[in-house]
Design a protein around this nucleic acid. Sequence first.
DNA 1: GCGGCATGTAAAGCAACATTGACATTCGGC
DNA 2: GCCGAATGTCAATGTTGCTTTACATGCCGC
Lengths: 68, 68
Amino acid sequence: MNNRLRVLRAERAWSQQDLADRLEVSRQSVNAIETGRYDPSLPLAFKIADLFELAIEDIFTNPAKEPE
Amino acid sequence: MNNRLRVLRAERAWSQQDLADRLEVSRQSVNAIETGRYDPSLPLAFKIADLFELAIEDIFTNPAKEPE
DNA sequence: GCGGCATGTAAAGCAACATTGACATTCGGC
DNA sequence: GCCGAATGTCAATGTTGCTTTACATGCCGC
């Protein structure tokens, strides 16, 4: 499960802490998601999509899918 | 986190077991998600959206959001 | 009435998500 | 050179998602 979180965050010049505050999660959670250590829960994914005003599919992509 | 899983399943006349097989999860997981006991993980949400050929947002909705 | 199917739910256990606290590194400003 | 901000990561802990096994219910066909 890849994601464009780091890019979206950079576009807004937010630190991981800034984003964590807006999402009401810890900085470590943001970091873990960005570095791909784990995927967010569905509720958190919704919160992220909401914050960036994008669809979940526009932020997260399933590498196991989309053949080529 | 509400979802239209039961409706989508009914439209196809699938049992919870049928859906569970297609999603490669247990019947109890399908039941738990339908009855709202817990939300699916993001990867499973993608799998569900994929199966029904819908966007995640078309299946799951965040009741905490959208004021009115 | 009995058997089979669909559904709801519970307990117990493991894996994944998320937390706090802490430490290391890098970079830029002063 | 030092300080502070930003990032990466680790350990320990708690919570949630998902599993298997199991049992109870309702419904339908026979």
